[in-house]
Design a protein around this nucleic acid. Structure first.
Length: 250
DNA sequence: AATGATATCAACCGCTCCTTA
DNA sequence: CTAAGGAGCGGTTGATATCAT
């Protein structure tokens, strides 16, 4: 293959669309593979970042609530700049988001709080030892962050991943799927792209609807044989919550 | 209305850790 | 056991938006 230059910088709608579909198919693992198979001239890293910080269906968008803010303060006081760890305690928020938020909003607050607490430290220490907010947190979910879906099967509790549970029920696993894929030089999706794109000119969905709306139509033109390979081809990426679809400022 | 300052946040970079062969 | 490759993390940068003058 000719070595094409790796794309950097802001993502386009088309790229988001492609990435969303490919992640829907193959799961959010093996990012190099995802990058390769998607036809995006992006690194796996870049794809992962885009997915985790922006495209993941479980993401909350918008301002931090006072409660979240408080939690970030507490957790940062406890753990320092362990952003991913903190993010795990704030469902729907990413490490990057929290990190940014901290830098812009809360460094000042933290300093202020530190000063006020240190001035009132002499009487009572309420900051670290007894910590009701932390204590009342849900059981530790550190092993798997909310956005770590591990492909379609890892997080069946997520709203949109009910299908994923079905896969498990039917006895499929991502491992099986990967094995199948590894055995073929040309992955089915690359064949798919033959009808979908010419070079870097991606198919562009109609501008009126969110990109995801079209996921289950033109894009998913697989043979019966192929579609059996990775399931649930029928209504796959529809699990994305379109009401929370990000706006594109580009 | 124009311009400069500041805030915000998406994205990249480099490093470390983990997994796999 | 070890080396290589991939994934994840934290820090940083740069483009854009918003606010103040």
């Amino acid at each position: 293959m000719a070595h094409e230059e790796i794309r950097k910088g802001p993502w386009t709608e088309q790229e988001d669309y492609l990435l969303t579909n490919v992640v829907g198919l193959f799961g959010d693992r093996r990012w190099d593979f995802v990058a390769k198979v998607s036809g995006l001239n992006r690194t796996g890293k870049s794809c992962r970042l885009r997915w985790v910080n922006y495209l993941h269906p479980g993401l909350k968008r918008g301002k931090m609530t006072a409660q979240e803010e408080h939690l970030v303060l507490e957790l940062h006081a406890k753990w320092g700049n362990r952003w991913s760890r903190i993010a795990r305690k704030l469902p729907g928020r990413t490490d990057n988001e929290i990190k940014n938020y901290w830098r812009t909003h809360m460094r000042k607050k933290a300093l202020e709080q530190k000063q006020t607490t240190s001035s009132s430290m002499t009487s009572s220490d309420s900051s670290s030892s007894s910590n009701p907010t932390l204590d009342s947190l849900s059981p530790d979910t550190e092993k798997e962050s909310f956005y770590d879906t591990g492909g379609l099967v890892a997080e069946p509790s997520l709203d949109g991943n009910k299908q994923a549970q079905e896969i498990v029920d039917r006895g499929y696993s991502m491992d099986d799927i990967w094995k199948d894929l590894d055995m073929t030089d040309e992955s089915p999706i690359s064949q798919l792209y033959g009808t979908f794109s010419e070079g870097s000119n991606f198919y562009c969905p109609p501008p009126v609807s969110p990109v995801w709306d079209n996921c289950s139509s033109s894009f998913w033109k697989l043979d019966d044989e192929e579609s059996k390979m990775f399931l649930p081809s029928t209504n796959l990426p529809t699990y994305y919550d379109l009401t929370e679809a990000p706006s594109y400022g580009y």
